[in-house]
């Protein structure tokens, strides 16, 4: 639990309704939000950390295996989870899910005509260490079509869900890949205010890349932090 909570910075988050993203039309709230000063119910939150990473769940190339390795380009994704003051958020869970290398989700609703991979579930989780660093291994997700508009394709992306220290620091986001030509055509990515969109794009990092094994990407995540400057001691 933190002692205070900085506001959700609406210059950093998408508005609830976006003309380009059709599903927001009937789903995005229309009334002004009512301001709720953070109390104990917002500052405290469920404690999900490394104890909730089961088995191979930080390695999506392993946790769905049935009879072999999943298809696709192995990647390592790592980064630091921190608050707005740059302080580490230690031992917090990062839940991830994604399409397989062919752009197909395991989810029963996904009817895209691309192959499922019997050895890839596409969901897992990891936790940050004492320095706020998380790391998971997976395969690069494929792009896939969706019915938002004619010839609409989602860019390659990985969904991430984080808790942080309180219910008020909850975040669900998506990580994108550098240089993807679909980014400029994607209404979900573009619903994010233009000046901050690059925060959703991972950096390729040769230092994270593991020789002869997997490409490395770095994606830092900033959660809401304490409103007040912390006192020393």
């Amino acid at each position: 639990m933190s002692d205070s909570l900085s506001p959700r910075d609406w210059a950093s988050h998408p508005a609830y309704r976006d003309p380009g993203y059709k599903s927001t039309g009937l789903r995005g709230p229309t009334q002004p939000l009512v301001t709720l000063p953070a109390g104990i119910g917002e500052l405290s939150g469920p404690r999900f950390g490394k104890d909730f990473v089961f088995g191979d769940d930080a390695d999506l190339t392993r946790n769905g295996r049935v009879n072999g390795e999943p298809q696709g380009e192995r990647i390592i994704v790592t980064g630091r989870v921190m608050d707005e003051n740059g302080r580490a958020v230690p031992d917090t869970l990062v839940e991830v899910w994604q399409a397989n290398a062919a752009g197909r989700y395991v989810h029963s609703r996904d009817q895209h005509d691309a192959p499922l991979d019997p050895n890839f579930l596409g969901a897992g989780r990891c936790a940050t260490d004492a320095d706020g660093v998380y790391r998971f291994l997976t395969v690069k997700p494929g792009a896939y079509p969706w019915p938002n508009h004619f010839n609409a394709w989602r860019p390659n992306h990985i969904h991430l869900s984080l808790f942080g220290p309180g219910f008020g620091t909850r975040l669900v986001t998506q990580m994108y890949f550098p240089g993807d030509p679909l980014l400029d055509l994607d209404p979900i990515f573009k619903a994010t205010p233009e000046p901050v969109r690059t925060r959703l794009v991972a950096d390729f990092d040769i230092e994270v890349t593991q020789e002869a094994y997997a490409l490395g990407y770095r994606f830092d995540i900033v959660l809401r932090g304490s409103a007040a400057t912390p006192m020393e001691g």
Binding site: S6, R8, D9, S12, H13, P14, Y21, S23, M82, D83, E84, N85, G86, E95, V96, W97, A99, Y105, V106, H107, S108, R109, D110, L121, G122, A123, G124, H159, S161, L171, V172, T173, Q174, I188, F189, T192, P193, V196, R197, R199, L200, D220, I221, V222, L223, R224, G225
Partner: peptide, 26 residues
Amino acid sequence: ATKGQTPSQTVGPYFAYGLTPEQYGY
């Protein structure tokens, strides 16, 4: 504050096998 908040994005239609797997039978 020196770091900007990571923007939120929708959970999308396919969250279930990642976030609520047992409820949905994954």
